[in-house]
Design a binder for these strands. Structure first.
Lengths: 214, 214
DNA sequence: CCTTTTCTTGAGTGGTTGCTCAACAAATAC
DNA sequence: GTATTTGTTGAGCAACCACTCAAGAAAAGG
C-alpha cells in the first residue's frame, strides 16, 4: 500500500538517497502516526485538516504536498494502523495459531486486552473511524466497510479450512461462525469505546467462545 | 420526554385547543419522523440542517421555531425512535417475556429481523448515529453513550432477577452476561449496516445464545 | 374593525471547512 | 557561481456550516 502519488519512498528498505530538492523538514512517519491517532479517536470527518496540521506540527501546504489530500492521508493512516501491533493482531493470530479454535480464542482475548488499552484510542480504527459520513465522503465509509467485509471472508476461509482438516465438525457452518465472530469483535470494539474495561471484555470473550461447535 | 421549550403539546392526549397565533403549516410529527430517518441513516453531524429542512419540507426558521436547534431536534428524534417499534423492541421483549432466557432469545432474533429491514435505515440509531463527533458535539456522543450504558444496566438487572428466581445458575455472572449480550447486539447492528442479511444475523443470534449458562 | 400572537419566508450572519497559490528557502546538478 | 528541484510559509479562496432576523401572513381575542 506504499507509493502514494506524491510520495518518494517507493523502494522502502533501500538506502535513502538524498533527494534533489529541499529536504522535508518534518518526520513523515511521525506526522502520519499523529494523524492516525486523531482519526482513530474522532473519526474521519470529525477530524479537521486544522486539527491534523496542529497535531502533526506542520502547515496545510506541507500536508498536501506530502500526503495529497485529507482522504489520501486517511487511507495512509489506515494502512499505518494495519501495520501496527494493534491493527495487525487479528492477522497475526490467524497466521501463528495452528488451530482455528486457538486462533479465534486468541483473537477475542487479545481484543479484550488491546481495545481498552489507555495507551491509544479505544477500539478498532477500521471499525469505528468512518461510521458517520456525509454523502460526499461516502467513499471513505465504503473503504472501511470493504476492509471489514474482507476480514469476514478471511475468517470464513480459515474456518472452512478447519472443517476440511476435521477440526470443525461437518455440520458446523463456517460462514455463520465467521459472521458471529465478526459481530462479537465489532461489538467489543464499540463496548470499549463506551468505557468497557479489559476485565469486562475478557468475560465477554470467554462467553463468546461458548459458541464454538462441540 | 415531550414538553420541549418551544413546543406547545405539553398535555399530550388532551383535546388540541386551537392555538392563538398563526397555526403551524406542517405536520410536526411527520417532520420529526423525516428528521429521525435522516439522523438514523447518516448520523448526527453528517446530517446538515440543510439536509433536514429539505427532507422535512420546511425552511430553517420553521425548524428552529418548532424544535429549538439541531441538538434538541436530534434528542427529540432519538425519543421518537425509542417510541417506534424498531426502537422499543428490546424493552418490550424484556417486559413481555416471562423468562430471561426467553427475553434475550427474542431480543436477538428480533434484532436479526429488524436491523436489516429495508423499510428503514439499517441497524440501531442509538448505537450508530453519534459514533464520530467533533469536540464541540461531544455532548451528543455522550448522550447516546449514556443510553447504551443504561441499557446494559437494565440487562444486568433482568439477569440478576433471573438468578434470584433460580432461572440462572448461582455461578452465572449477570454482569458479564449483560455485557456479552450488549456487545452482540451492537455487533449485529454494525453488521447490518455493513450489509448483513436477516438470515446471516439470525444465524449469529442462534450462535450467540449458546453462551447461555447450562 | 384592530390588536395580539404565532408561524413562514428569504435574505443574510459570522465562523469553519478542505484546499490553493505565489513567494521564499534549502537542497543537488552542472 | 547559476539552474533546477522540492519543501515551507502565510495569506486567502469558495463553499458550506448552524443559525438569526425583519417583514409579512394567518389565526384568535376583543
Amino acid at each position: 500500500m506504499g507509493g502514494m502519488t506524491t510520495d518518494t519512498d517507493a523502494d522502502a528498505g533501500a538506502v535513502r538517497r538524498p533527494a534533489r530538492g529541499r529536504p522535508r523538514a518534518f518526520d513523515r512517519d511521525a506526522a502520519l502516526a499523529a494523524a492516525t491517532l486523531l482519526f482513530w479517536r474522532r473519526g474521519y470527518e470529525a477530524t479537521s485538516v486544522g486539527d491534523l496540521t496542529e497535531a502533526m506540527g506542520i502547515r496545510p501546504g506541507s500536508l498536501y504536498a506530502a500526503f495529497g489530500d485529507k482522504k489520501a492521508l486517511f487511507k495512509e493512516a489506515v494502512a499505518a494502523y494495519g501495520r501496527s501491533p494493534v491493527g495487525a493482531f487479528v492477522a497475526v493470530a490467524l497466521e501463528e495459531e495452528p488451530t482455528a479454535r486457538g486462533a479465534f480464542a486468541r483473537i477475542l482475548r487479545e481484543a479484550a486486552a488491546i481495545y481498552p488499552d489507555p495507551s491509544h484510542p479505544a477500539g478498532c480504527l477500521t471499525i469505528c473511524a468512518a461510521t458517520n459520513v456525509t454523502v460526499q465522503d461516502e467513499e471513505v465509509g465504503a473503504f472501511l466497510r470493504d476492509l471489514r467485509n474482507a476480514n469476514l471472508v478471511t475468517f470464513e476461509a480459515r474456518l472452512r479450512a478447519a472443517q476440511d482438516e476435521g477440526e470443525l465438525p461437518a455440520d458446523a457452518d463456517p460462514k455463520a461462525l465467521a459472521a458471529y465472530f465478526a459481530a462479537i469483535i465489532q461489538g467489543m470494539s464499540q463496548r470499549s469505546r463506551d468505557g468497557a474495561t479489559a476485565a469486562e471484555l475478557a468475560a465477554t470473550a470467554d462467553l463468546a467462545l461458548a459458541a464454538w461447535p462441540a
